[in-house]
Amino acid sequence: MTLKVERLGHSTRLQEVSFAAQPGELVGILGANGAGKSTLLQLLCGVLEPDAGQLTYQQRDLTQISAYERRQLLGYLPQTPVAEGGIRVDHFLQAGLVNLHLSCPGKELNRVVETLQIHALLERTLDKLSGGEQRRVHIARALLGDHNWLLCDEPTTSLDLYYQLQVMAVLRAQADRGKLVTLALHDLGLAARYCDRLVLIDKGRLLAEGAPAAVLTDANLAQAYKIKARWLCTDEGVTLLPSLLS
């Protein structure tokens, strides 16, 4: 039941990134802009084909799985979803049920609506929503199907502080239910607070991977982000006060 990424590479960004992850883990993919986070997620979900390396999930070579099978296997939230214009939110979510083997699709739709608290948005059209509201709707669609593996590229983009915490709590709960959740994140405080494992990429190469405390070291942050950091820790979690390297 392990995800294994071995020396995975792609000519646009990624070079020889390797790590393993288990069901029940929330894995954060970190790195500066252009480091290769989105490329890695696109390779994992099959949007891109790797130039090198091996990618296996549950002992299956993911490059040999059809698009239809991937749809059953995983849920994916891209960094920039395709614009859907004037489609109503409820219709947009219903379209996400296509090609999913569900005995009660209506029940599944109600589950994600409740989970993301988007009842008030259902009869509105996507083009009339704020950026944060659209993001919550797209997250809801990625959750449809109750997949064992969820990939999210910057799920907290455009969200205010309340909904950032809500979305991270939802994703944490997915992992606690035994699912593998893999996210690209920019917010290091959220990554340290919610993730079990971090994968830090620098210029397309793996810089560090492991528990948050082992990855978010002064040396790694200086190399990957060109910052120094002060961490504030409380019983509720941690947050980061960054400053530029002098």
Rank of each mutant, 00 (worst) to 15 (best):
M1Y: 11
M1W: 03
T2V: 10
T2Y: 08
T2E: 11
R7P: 05
S11K: 11
L14F: 08
Q15F: 06
Q15T: 07
S18T: 07
Q22E: 15
L26G: 00
L26Q: 06
G28S: 11
G31Y: 02
G31I: 06
A32P: 06
S38L: 05
C45F: 07
C45N: 09
V47M: 01
L48M: 07
L48N: 12
E49N: 15
E49R: 13
P50E: 09
G53T: 06
G53S: 05
Q54C: 14
L55I: 02
T56G: 04
T56P: 02
R60L: 15
Q64D: 12
Q64L: 11
I65L: 15
I65E: 13
S66W: 11
A67M: 13
A67T: 12
A67I: 14
R71Q: 12
R71I: 05
Q72Y: 00
Q72T: 04
Q72E: 12
L74V: 03
G75R: 09
L77E: 05
P78S: 00
T80I: 10
P81E: 13
V82S: 15
E84I: 03
E84T: 05
I87T: 14
R88Q: 06
R88V: 00
H91G: 13
Q94Y: 03
A95S: 15
G96A: 13
G96Q: 08
V98P: 07
N99P: 02
S103Q: 13
C104Y: 14
P105H: 01
K107I: 10
L109V: 11
R111M: 14
E114L: 09
Q117I: 00
Q117F: 02
E123K: 11
E123H: 15
R124W: 10
R124N: 15
T125K: 13
D127E: 14
S130G: 03
G131P: 02
Q134N: 11
R136A: 05
R136Y: 01
H138W: 10
A140P: 03
L143W: 06
H147S: 12
N148Q: 14
C152W: 01
D153M: 01
E154T: 00
E154W: 04
S158P: 10
L159Q: 00
Y162L: 08
Y163L: 02
L165A: 11
L165M: 09
Q166G: 04
V167D: 06
V167W: 01
M168Y: 06
M168I: 04
M168D: 13
D176L: 13
G178I: 01
K179E: 04
L180W: 00
L180R: 10
T182Q: 08
A184R: 04
A184F: 04
A184N: 04
H186M: 03
H186S: 09
G189S: 07
A192R: 02
A192Y: 04
R193N: 13
R193T: 15
D196L: 01
D196S: 09
L198T: 05
L198R: 10
V199W: 01
V199T: 02
V199C: 11
L200T: 04
I201Q: 08
D202L: 11
L206V: 03
A208C: 03
G210N: 03
A213Y: 03
T217G: 07
D218G: 10
D218A: 12
A219M: 08
A219F: 07
N220K: 00
N220L: 08
L221E: 13
L221Q: 12
A224L: 08
K228S: 11
K228D: 08
W231T: 09
C233V: 15
T234Q: 03
G237S: 09
G237M: 08
L245F: 04
S246Y: 05
